[in-house]
């Protein structure tokens, strides 16, 4: 059996390369920074290889439906949960808190 994993796409047929680009948004830069600071030699809480493995394990549907830094934060967050750096409860509570704050900011137009 020759398993080809979803991320391993060299040589597959695909359409024209659309020369898209955008200025990176602050939330994307933040994801980048989270991964970098957690993977410094002093901390070694995450590694690039673990991050890649976690991205690959998101599976074909999620991999394609998320954009680049969405995949990064998904993988990094899973790793932090696995390693016990954060708990599911903490994450859930904090996400609810962030969402409520952002929603309020938007509603008040601030």
């Amino acid at each position: 059996m020759t398993i080809r994993r979803h991320h391993d796409m060299g040589g597959l047929d695909a359409g024209a390369v659309e020369q898209t680009e955008h200025d990176y948004a602050i939330w994307e830069k933040r994801v980048d920074a989270i991964v970098k600071v957690l993977s410094t030699p002093e901390r070694k809480i995450l590694s690039t290889d673990e991050l890649r493995r976690g991205i690959e394990e998101l599976g074909p549907g999620v991999y394609d439906n998320l954009n680049y830094y969405e995949r990064w934060i998904s993988s990094a967050t899973n790793l932090l949960l696995e390693k016990g750096v954060i708990t599911v409860d903490e994450l859930g509570a904090k996400m609810a808190d962030v969402e409520a704050r952002w929603q309020k900011d938007r509603d008040t137009g601030s």
Binding site: T2, R5, D8
Partner: peptide, 13 residues
Amino acid sequence: AFPPGHVRTPHFI
């Protein structure tokens, strides 16, 4: 070889 886990050798090669 075609192991199921994380490797850095592309499939095509």
